[in-house]
Structures are given as structure tokens and as C-alpha cells.
Amino acid sequence: MRGALLFLLAVGAVAAVPHAVSSRYWLHVANLSLIYVPLAIGANVITGYCGMVSMGQAAFFGIGAYTSALLTMRLGVPWPVAFVAAGLMAGAAGAVLALPCLRVRSDFLSLITIAFNQLFLVVANAWLSLTRGPMGLPQVPRMEILGWTVRTEGQIFTVVATVAILCAWATTRLAASPVGRSWEMIRDDEVAARALGVNVVRGKLAAFAVGCTLAGLAGSLLAHSLRLVVPDAFLLDESLLIMQMAILGGLASVPGSVLGAFLMVGLPEALRSSDPWLLTYRPGIFGALLVAAMIWRPQGLLGARRAAPPFLRGASDALRRTLRLSPRHSTP
């Protein structure tokens, strides 16, 4: 019932906003934020639901963008097909990348993802015949769905918002399914999960692949709405920003990720014209919030209390102990 109501509300908003908001600028800000929604949700699947940290989401974002742009430009593939292919490509890349680390120790995964992001940038800048290097791919074709060409910011809003809602809906469903439950089990206690027969490696791999697929889908949206793909859009800073959206918005909370995307992309973008200081110092400001959040509110802004159990609960207790200056602590 509540779900149906939310769905109707979402459909109404998607239909109404392009007519109600006449300013192209505000629609652009909304579109950019909405493109980051699947990215933030993807990072949340990896970090919030499964307890791993990926610091290379921008690379998968980029893989999606390049895949989609190149497929439509070079091979003339229709956009919806290229969109799906972008997601699959990024997801497959993520799975291949994660496989060696997950068998050993998942905290090395975050290192590998950093290295992968740097490697992606090197390849994107150097493989001139495919990516045109730093010049990027200009004139990416517009999105076109069954003969309907997406031209204005308002039309882009309709598509981008629809995708964001579908991603949010699918992730919510997935998180409530046995797969999602096993992710949370792995996150909270890996040893116990294994003892209960959960296939830990497969679970982590699935979470990583889903997270990267969502990033790839967002990449396709970016490529065809900005109509330009350049390597500089996928720097490591971008990865860190995506990760921060997921964590600060709320771990294991899909609405939290949506909030995170709007707060961290929309707000600085909206203030850009008056004074760019928020964009310049965004990493530092949100970095400080990250530290504070880890100490006082590890579940993030909208994260459920349910999301903070054994996995995260220790943090604030540890702080209380520290403030009492008790020297007692155990091995990490």
C-alpha cells in the first residue's frame, strides 16, 4: 500500500516537474543530481549493504559512459540497448576486478579499486584510436527511445528521473530478498554467515557487480545528456565523492543515497554561480563530516538503526569510552 502510494507520487512528480519548473538551469541541476542517484545507490549496495569499500566507482561510471557513447556513435546501436550494455559492461568489469581480492581479504579490494581508477584514466587518456584521449568524445547522440528523441532539459529529466526511480525500486526489492539478507549477514558477521552456509565470496561478488552495474547505467545517462565524454569526469576525487554520498546519506538506506546525491551534487552545483567556494572545498568539508559521522552517527543521515548493528555499533561506544579516558580496549 505504502509502496503503491510512493510509486504514484513518484510518477506524478516525474510528469509534473518538467512542466512546473521553467528554469532550464534548475532542471539541469536536478538532472545532474539524478544521474548521481544510481551511482550513490550502487556505492551503497557495496558499502552499506555488504560492508565493502569501493573507491573506484568513477571508473565504472566511466566505463559505462564510454561503452554507451562508443556503441551508439561507432556501431549505431539504439540508445536503450547501449544503456543496458553500459551497465553490463561495468558490472562485468567490476566482477572480474573483485574476484582475486574477495578470495583473500576484502579490505584490499578498496586498494585495487583505487589502482583500477588510476589505470582506467591512463587507458582513457592514452587509447587515442578508441577514446580520442583527453579530447574526449564530443557530439554524443541524444537519447532516443522508440523514435522519441530526448532534446530539452525537461525531457532529459523525465528519462533520468525514471531511471533513478527504477534503480531505487529495484535495489529496495533486492535488499529485501534473500540475496540482500545474505549481504547484510556477510556485513555483520562474515564468520557466522559462512557457518550458516552463506556463500560469502559469491555474495560479495554479487554485491560488487550490482553496484558497478548501477554505476555503468549512470555513465550512460551522463554521456547522452551532457553529450560529451572526457576522462577528466572520472577522476579519483569523483569516486570518493560517490562513496561519501552513500555513507553520509545513510548506509543501507536507498532514500539516504538519493538525499546524498542531491546534497552533494545538487547543492554545490546550485551555489556554483554565486560563489564556487563550496565546490572548491567540497572534499574537505564532506571529509570532515565523514570523520564526524563515523564517530557519532555511523549509519549516516537517513540510515536505519537496523543498519548500525554489530557492523557499526562499536564506534560510538568506543568514543564514550575514550572520553572517559579509560585505557581499556581490546584488539581490533
Partner: peptide, 20 residues
């Protein structure tokens, strides 16, 4: 403050400190 928390927590706060 987060030394006893699960491993993901100090990793993220480390990253935040680095960003600052």
C-alpha cells in the same frame, strides 16, 4: 575514537581525514 569499531569504520574515517 573508532579503534574498536569494525574495520570499515576506521577506513572511512581515515579517508575523511585525508580529504580534509
Amino acid at each position: 575514537p573508532v579503534r574498536n569499531a569494525p574495520r570499515t569504520v576506521p577506513m572511512i574515517s581515515a579517508l575523511g581525514a585525508g580529504l580534509v
